[in-house]
Simulated assay, not measured.
Amino acid sequence: MSDQTSSPTLTRPAFWRRGLAGLLDFITVFFVGGYAIGSLTGETTNNGFNLNGLPALVLLVLIVAYFYFGWKVWGGTIWQRILGARPVP
């Protein structure tokens, strides 16, 4: 008798999809989050935003939180879902 307890294997999408999704996620969160924080703190310029000190730290925390929740809680970030770059069981 053989005990076959197999865990589901994950099929990894192509590297270029995962890499492009990560890059686009970072760019999206950086610009959307940066502009939103800049608007709330009055640190917008004619060319976008210029964050210094605490607002810059808040943006960094926002970026880390986005990737953490995207990977661990929501099952994929926005661009992973768009590009089909999430691991599929």
Rank of each mutant, 00 (worst) to 15 (best):
S2A: 13
D3C: 02
Q4S: 10
T5N: 01
T5S: 00
S6D: 10
S6N: 06
S6W: 02
S7R: 10
P8M: 10
P8T: 13
L10I: 02
L10C: 00
T11Q: 14
T11H: 12
R12N: 07
P13V: 00
A14N: 03
A14Q: 03
A14S: 12
W16R: 11
R17K: 13
G19P: 10
L20V: 11
A21T: 05
L23F: 15
L23G: 15
L24V: 07
L24W: 04
D25F: 04
F26C: 10
F26K: 09
F26R: 11
I27M: 14
T28V: 09
T28H: 07
T28R: 05
V29Q: 01
V29F: 05
F30K: 00
F31L: 14
F31M: 09
G34Q: 04
Y35L: 14
A36S: 10
A36Y: 03
I37L: 14
G38P: 05
G38V: 09
L40K: 14
T41Q: 09
E43S: 08
E43I: 00
E43A: 09
T44E: 02
T45D: 14
N46T: 00
N47L: 04
G48V: 07
F49I: 01
F49N: 00
F49L: 01
N50D: 13
L51M: 04
L51Q: 04
N52Y: 12
N52K: 10
N52A: 05
N52V: 03
G53A: 06
G53W: 03
L54E: 02
P55G: 07
V58A: 11
V58I: 15
V58Q: 02
L60A: 15
V61M: 04
L62F: 13
L62I: 13
V64T: 13
A65C: 11
A65N: 03
F67P: 10
F67D: 10
F67A: 09
F67Q: 12
Y68G: 04
Y68W: 14
F69V: 15
F69K: 01
G70K: 07
G70R: 06
G70Y: 08
K72I: 14
K72F: 15
V73N: 00
W74R: 02
G76Q: 02
G76K: 01
T77R: 01
T77P: 08
T77D: 02
T77N: 05
I78M: 15
W79D: 01
Q80F: 04
R81E: 11
R81K: 15
I82L: 14
R86K: 15
R86L: 13
V88L: 11
P89S: 13
P89H: 12
